[in-house]
Amino acid sequence: MEGIGIWGVPLAIFAGAIRVSTPFIFVSLGESITERSGRINLGLEGTLVFGAMTAYAIAVMSGSPWLGVLAAMATGAIFGLIHGFICKFPKVNDIAIGIAMMQFGLGLAFFLGKPFIQPVAPRLPSIPLGGWSDIPQVQSALNINVLFVIGGLLAVALWWAFKNTRLGLILRVVGDSSDAARAMGLNPDTVRLFATAVGGSLAAVGGAYLSLYYPGSWNEGISSGQGLMAVALVIFARWNPIGCFLAALLFGGAGALGPALQSVGVTQGYYLFYAAPYVLTLAILVATSSPSRSLAGAPGALSITK
């Protein structure tokens, strides 16, 4: 980082936060919809990786990365529908089914994705916002990917929709009390089915980002647990979409700390910095939890907070 010296660290953290957080934004927004309906889908890791594979494969075959994203959304929705359908049967544990669907999604993605490890897919575009500066580091840091922008807008839209729309109200009622929902003539299972499907399709967009933007390739190690972590982020964000967006940014920034420090020559305890986002999340969870009440904002029918 010659030229800007120590300022390279915050700049690298800023760029890293945006780059790392984008998949977390989509997966956690998707999961927030699902959890708001009173169900938890722990299988989004599988959905994410399958989405990454689908997006890459379709982008290779069609030449259009956006078509890849759409295809990923479709497969993500199918995964969500399977999860939602199975979970409506009595005595079926949604957490366990999530882990099973994760295994299934990962297996199927590696199974079908083998032929696509070699070919190169077109990448998703980015918006260069750094044209005003002539420092190359600033320019590259401000090269914002389109999905990040969409994710931010989506977070605001969801936050508004949860509060102000009929659909948002239906979702919240079902999430808070199955009985109240039934009294209103709503079928909780149907609402949760669709909430899980929408959640799955958003998680798959997070996967598409991984394979089509950063790191921008398809292989079996593409995800480093983004799908699993997003479930923690949603609880951390108290089921608030804007909170999800901010939590993802914070998480991404903490994750970028290690590489950023390494780039200016700090190598002591380099691997410990990889733990930073997890330590941060855990610390805030511990600080804000209480043994005597459930978390503020938690959907009443959600199994994980009972």
């Binding site: 647990g225 691997y271 733990a275 855990l282 511990v286 005597s292």
Partner: peptide, 29 residues
Amino acid sequence: RHYRGVNETIASLLMAYIAIALMNHFIEG
């Protein structure tokens, strides 16, 4: 879980990632 009411599923998952980072720190350092 018991004394702070932290969800054990999420806490154990986060701690698994922390553990892997610690392992890398020790075997690389």
